[in-house]
């Protein structure tokens, strides 16, 4: 699936200080089946850009195109159903749900999620629930091995996991769906080095085996260098540099204004 941003603009009006132009015409064609990183200083609007793509912000100007089609009319959940998966900054899992329930919530199969269904189709719900459970177990087996501790923790509340582990499962959870584009917002922040490697492996696997398109916000430049094919540098509300990762990160302007070297 092809994701393209055309001339995205976003302005906040603040009657005290006048208008604040956060995004001033962002253009980006994300290459299919590759990993693209977005880098830039704090407050340059990277997460905001993700929020525009996933439909949380609707009063933007410009176009977000999926396979050439403007998705402006689609609300967030429809964009997700259309194949845009999202990993948020910060904690990932719903702590009052068990690990298994968290996995199930990410499935595209919504059988039983209408209040009438337990009264007219409880048998069918059972089958679907069973399928989802199998799928979740498969994914965890595949990513963490059949001896992983998560298999025995499936019925525990997600809040029992550490922050780093929650991020891991949060990424694993994205496999339950049928996403074709993943928006990953700082997947490695607050995660210890061991998990960072696991996360990188998972992302690589996704792209190689399932031909996913990945767009990633990251401040960890080693992670970006080891993973991303392309890199976009966002500053002053625009993509100032775009190209191969090495090239962009070695650019003098980027070095001076963002990396500070």
């Amino acid at each position: 699936m092809k994701l393209e941003l055309q001339d995205i603009r976003l302005t906040f009006s603040n009657s005290r200080k006048g208008d604040f132009h956060l995004l001033q015409g962002v253009n980006l064609a994300v290459s299919e089946g590759e990993i693209t990183a977005i880098v830039g200083g704090n407050g340059t609007g990277k997460t905001t850009l993700f929020n525009i793509i996933s439909g949380f912000i609707t009063d933007y100007q410009g176009k977000v195109l999926i396979d050439g089609k403007d998705i402006r009319p689609l609300p967030t959940y429809k964009r997700a159903q259309a194949g845009i998966g999202r990993l948020f900054q910060g904690t990932q899992l719903m702590g009052n749900l068990t690990l298994m329930e968290n996995m199930k919530m990410a499935s595209v199969d919504t059988m039983g999620e209408h209040p009438i269904s337990p009264f007219i189709a409880w048998k069918s719900i059972r089958t679907h629930e069973y399928q989802k459970e199998q799928r979740a177990i498969d994914i965890i087996n595949k990513l963490f091995g059949s001896d992983s501790k998560y298999l025995s923790m499936l019925d525990q509340k997600a809040s029992a996991l550490s922050y780093g582990e929650q991020r891991l499962i949060g990424i694993a959870r994205l496999l339950m769906g049928e996403s074709k584009i993943l928006l990953l917002d700082e997947p490695t922040s607050g995660v210890n080095p061991v998990y960072i490697k696991t996360i990188a492996d998972i992302i690589r696997k996704l792209v190689e085996e399932q031909h996913m398109t990945v767009l990633l916000i990251e401040h960890n430049m080693n992670f970006v260098k080891s993973l991303a094919t392309n890199c976009a540098y966002l500053d002053n509300g625009k993509i100032m540099q775009y190209g191969q990762t090495e090239q962009v990160l070695n650019d003098e302007g980027v070095k001076n204004s963002y990396l500070g070297v």
């Binding site: 967030t76 959940y77 159903q81 719903m94 702590g95 749900l97 999620e113 337990p118």
Partner: peptide
């Protein structure tokens, strides 16, 4: 009780915890 135990009950609990995430997982919250 039937509703609470059903996937619908689970969906509501998920919304209670983090509605934004549930939307991003493709649910019409």
């Amino acid at each position: 009780v039937a509703l609470k135990k059903s996937p619908y009950g689970r969906l509501l609990r998920a919304i209670r915890a983090d509605e934004t995430a549930v939307k991003a997982l493709g649910r019409n919250t």
